[in-house]
Amino acid sequence: MNDIVLSIMVLGALALLGGAWLALKRGDRKRAILMAILAVVIGANVAILSLPAPMGGAEARAASPSGPSRP
């Protein structure tokens, strides 16, 4: 499910960049800049969300060689 969301976000960012180029071509510089900034923000979110999560807490205890520890 996460892969689908990330793919849609990338497609949206690409569409925003295309729209920014068209807006710039028509002379609407302010809208083009805002669309490009939004595409960069979406790209940064995709990069952050695609990083692997650090292993800690319950995952680390379950993956330890001695098995889950009970206090």
Rank of each mutant, 00 (worst) to 15 (best):
M1T: 06
M1A: 13
M1N: 06
M1R: 08
N2E: 10
I4K: 10
I4E: 13
I4L: 10
I4C: 08
V5E: 04
V5T: 12
V5Q: 11
L6N: 08
L6P: 02
L6G: 03
L6M: 14
L6I: 08
L6Q: 10
S7L: 07
S7P: 01
S7Q: 12
I8K: 12
I8G: 02
I8S: 07
I8V: 10
I8N: 09
I8M: 11
I8H: 09
I8R: 11
M9V: 01
M9S: 07
L11Y: 10
G12Y: 05
G12C: 09
G12A: 14
A13P: 08
A13W: 07
L14N: 14
L14A: 15
L14E: 14
L14S: 14
A15H: 04
L16V: 01
L16M: 10
L16Y: 08
L16E: 01
L16C: 00
L17H: 08
L17Y: 04
G18K: 02
G18W: 01
G18A: 12
G19M: 09
G19R: 08
A20F: 04
A20D: 08
A20M: 09
A20E: 06
W21D: 07
W21C: 11
L22N: 09
A23V: 00
L24I: 02
R26N: 14
R26D: 11
R26S: 13
D28A: 12
R29K: 15
K30W: 03
K30C: 09
K30E: 15
K30M: 11
K30R: 15
R31H: 06
R31A: 14
R31W: 04
A32N: 09
A32E: 07
A32T: 08
A32Y: 05
I33G: 10
I33N: 12
L34V: 12
L34R: 08
A36I: 05
A36G: 14
I37P: 00
L38Y: 01
L38A: 15
L38P: 00
A39Q: 01
A39N: 03
A39C: 02
V40Q: 05
V40M: 12
I42A: 06
I42H: 01
I42S: 00
I42T: 03
I42V: 15
G43M: 04
G43P: 07
A44V: 04
A44W: 00
V46N: 06
V46M: 07
V46L: 05
V46Y: 00
A47I: 06
A47S: 08
A47M: 09
I48N: 15
I48P: 00
S50G: 04
L51I: 09
P52G: 00
P52R: 09
A53Q: 12
A53D: 04
P54L: 09
P54M: 05
M55C: 04
M55F: 04
G56W: 01
G56Q: 10
G57T: 05
G57L: 05
G57W: 08
G57V: 02
A58R: 12
A58D: 09
A58Q: 11
E59L: 07
E59I: 02
E59V: 07
R61K: 06
R61Y: 01
A62C: 00
A62K: 03
A63T: 01
A63K: 02
S64F: 05
S64P: 06
P65D: 07
S66E: 12
S66R: 13
G67W: 03
P68Y: 06
P68Q: 13
P68G: 14
P68A: 02
S69K: 14
R70S: 11
R70V: 15
R70D: 06
P71Y: 13
P71R: 11
P71F: 10
P71K: 11
